[in-house]
């Protein structure tokens, strides 16, 4: 493992909604996966930057050609602007992490959705070329499992914005049969919630970003702990609306596909280990913050003899931290050299 002393090792969770980085120096950063370029010279003078990233881009979106370059956890196909946006996000994250200046070599492990196509991994490689010195791309749920050392007889359910990844850890690097990726995830909940709110409150004006915020703050399944009341403009006037039922229905839409996938993967586990896996289901990703989700999944497992569903402590950084763990454990020979 020679040379690790001069190396900055980083783990990156490249997410549809947010991307996070964890570094060997202990730094952790997260940015919203948005990139915006000024739409014209006026905007450029107002913004005073050639490109804005993350929250800054969202806040100034009226002045920007705004891109959310990842769709279902993958780089959108066929758009050079989106590829450029991914480069900006990754460059920004690595820039935030790189305290040693340009001389410092960077090794990166990047987590991507479980069933990412090879062509998209290759695209990611191209993007990373010249940006880091060495690269390993891993399945995101595998990274989560590795990070918390849930390596054997566990199931990771990584509920992100664009995808939900399921992965059974059998003490080996997960194969196709060990993993599933669903597009039922945070974004699909947002879309449904927006539709339900619009149906019930047709006069209310809102954006998908507001809906996302409501879900993240109040998301729940099962019984509500109280009314979910939010404020949004109606004909220009701030108005309070009750969206309890809409939030519940939207979040509840995850339960059936999650349950089905969970049971499907469990059935493929060797019978003697199924009970252990059932009692070691781990929720990760920001979807794990939906109140009552673990309990609902446990109800589904009860039909099979019971199970235990828990959630990672830090869903925002669990993926990036797992990638960092892999980076720190990997030998020199494990890395793909990425010098341009």
């Amino acid at each position: 493992m020679s040379g690790k002393g001069q190396m900055l090792s980083v783990g990156i969770d490249l997410g549809t909604s947010q991307s996070a980085i964890a570094t060997s120096t202990g730094a952790r950063h997260v940015v919203d996966s948005y990139v915006g370029w000024p739409v014209d010279m006026v905007a450029k003078k107002v913004i005073k930057k050639p490109v804005l990233i993350g929250t800054e881009a969202l806040e100034n979106r009226s002045l920007l050609d705004l891109h959310r370059p990842l769709e279902q956890g993958l780089i959108k196909e066929g758009s050079e602007k989106d590829i450029a946006a991914v480069k900006e996000i990754l460059g920004h994250l690595i820039g935030l992490a790189g305290e040693g200046g340009k001389e410092q070599k960077v090794r990166a492990v990047v987590g991507v959705p479980a069933e990412t196509l090879r062509v998209n991994k290759q695209q990611l490689r191209q993007v990373m070329r010249g940006m880091v010195d060495s690269l390993i791309i891993v399945s995101e749920p595998f990274a989560v499992a590795y990070g918390i050392e849930a390596l054997l007889h566990t199931m990771i359910v990584d509920s992100g914005a664009g995808t939900t990844d399921f992965c059974v850890m059998k003490g080996r690097y997960p194969t196709e049969e060990d993993q599933r990726t669903l597009t039922k995830a945070g974004d699909s909940v947002d879309d449904l919630l927006a539709k339900l709110v619009a149906e019930r409150h047709p006069a209310i004006q809102f954006t998908i970003h507001m809906v996302r915020g409501w879900k993240e703050q109040h998301g729940f399944v099962g019984e509500p702990q109280g009314k979910v009341v939010v404020t949004a403009p109606s004909h220009g006037k701030a108005t309070q609306i009750d969206i309890t039922e809409e939030v519940r229905l939207a979040c509840q839409s995850l339960i059936a596909p999650y349950t089905e996938t969970l049971l499907d993967l469990l059935a493929a586990v060797e019978p003697e280990y199924q009970e252990r896996v059932r009692h070691n289901v781990i929720l990760a990703g920001r979807g794990s913050r939906i109140r009552g989700l673990a309990g609902e999944l446990e109800k589904a497992l009860a039909d099979l003899g019971g199970g235990k569903v828990s959630a990672v402590e830090d869903p925002v950084f669990a993926g990036a931290a797992g990638c960092l763990s892999i980076a720190l454990d990997a030998d020199d020979s494990d890395w793909e050299k990425m010098t341009a």
Binding site: I136, V138, F142, Y146, G147, I148, E149, A150, L151, L152, T154, G171, R172, Y173, P174, I282, L283, S288, R291, G292, L293, A294, G295, V309, S310, A311, V312, E313, D314, A318, S325, I326, D329, A330, D331, D334
Partner: peptide, 29 residues
């Protein structure tokens, strides 16, 4: 509600076999 999971040592039942298992997983990656 879900219990928090996140401390690495709390999840690992293998003791001294941890490194071998990790090595195998890394090789797979």
């Amino acid at each position: 509600m879900a219990d928090g999971v996140g401390t690495r040592s709390a999840r690992l039942p293998f003791g001294g076999r941890e490194d071998r298992l990790k090595r195998r997983l890394l090789s797979g990656a």
